[in-house]
Design a binder for these strands. Structure first.
Lengths: 204, 204
DNA sequence: GCATTTTGTGAGGACATCCTCATATACTCC
DNA sequence: GGAGTATATGAGGATGTCCTCACAAAATGC
């Protein structure tokens, strides 16, 4: 499916690769500030110091831009998840939980456009739903060594709870006028630990 | 601040009130299906069986329509919260929790446009942020009789956790491909109960 | 029935956005 | 230097949406 329209190009020279990178950086910022719907191609091109024509030379559509941004994010995200999955068998479950928590919060803080793009139903559906599924799988696989005999369906249900709780934590992080924020986040984390402990047998 | 533009009218006759009600019903549906940004005034008017001019006679702006819809929702929501607050001193905290949970889930199920309108930063900001604050206050007041001596800031922080957990539950309810959904929701509820028990002294 | 007020209508102006295309510039390789 | 390719440009077409406005219809009171 790597067919490309005649007017859409892959960068062939260093200059092109730099431009694409600049365009994606700009898109990242604009999406983060305005969200997918309100972001405009003109604004993205302008912030990258390029013309609209240049933007459309590499991305045939606003959705394609968003998908490219998400693909970039996904790569970074999957790396961190893979590291956690590799380490999973050797760690205790509560250690995993208290590692996963700040990992995802930091990721969301470092990639402010991610939430708006990944959670919106409208817009870049291509990558977005795929990312959600991948993340559920990763978390399920991280949990698996600590839940011997549990089937994949149950694991993925638990993973959904874990991920949604993470999303909750991110939402709280961004909430204005919230007193005792660090304490609240700590309580959320503890709440999640209690949940995991209740669902999994005693860890080694 | 009840100043109104010359071209914007309050309904004076029964016919007008009916039309406004029909318009709000239609807006509810369209917002629920398309979200605030993608919803169009033309679609709202059409679904209400009215003309665009008629719509603009009562609502000067799309935001005003959304705000009116939210105001309607808020009224229904505050009623239920007030009932819980009134009953709070006489109930045990775990009873309150297991009442609050389905109450909010049912509310969201009955008012499918609520989430999209209340949670979006862009769009109807007028009502949306106000509703969030009101809800925090309600939950804080519901918790207060069971947390003697706890100051308002701490109560509102707990309320934020409770509300965000509710949002998690709603998100899980709407998640497709989630196996064991009822069991998962029950677990979430139990998780919240554990959290509350840990934060509050033993109830009477 | 007639005057007044409220309600209803839909064509179209103003504006913004996505995207195209013909053309110009920069680069590479011989 | 010149041919060939990749990159750059921005005016403008197509489209869609918000909202206005001049006027028509209906309801009310007398």
């Amino acid at each position: 499916m790597s067919s490309q329209n005649a007017t859409v190009r892959q960068p062939q020279r260093e200059k092109g690769r730099l431009r694409v990178a600049a365009l994606l950086d700009a898109a990242q910022q604009v999406f983060a500030e305005d969200g997918f719907d309100a972001a405009t191609m003109t604004a993205i091109a302008a912030r990258a110091g390029a013309s609209i024509g240049s933007l459309y030379q590499y991305f045939p559509t606003k959705e394609h831009v968003a998908d490219a941004v998400l693909a970039r994010y996904a790569e970074a995200l999957y790396q961190r998840m893979q590291a956690l999955q590799d380490a999973s068998p050797e760690w205790r479950i509560d250690q995993l939980a208290s590692e996963l928590f700040p990992t995802l919060i930091r990721f969301r803080a470092d990639h402010p456009a991610f939430g708006g793009l990944a959670e919106s139903e409208r817009g870049p559906a291509l990558q977005a739903t795929g990312i959600r599924k991948h993340m559920r799988r990763y978390v399920a696989e991280i949990l698996r060594p600590h839940a011997p005999g549990m089937d994949t369906e149950q694991l993925e249900a638990m993973a959904a709870v874990v991920l949604q709780t993470m999303k909750t934590a991110v939402a709280l992080t961004n909430e204005i006028d919230l007193p005792h924020r660090p304490a609240v986040l700590a309580q959320l984390q503890q709440m999640l630990a209690l949940y995991l402990a209740a669902q999994l047998p005693a860890s080694t």
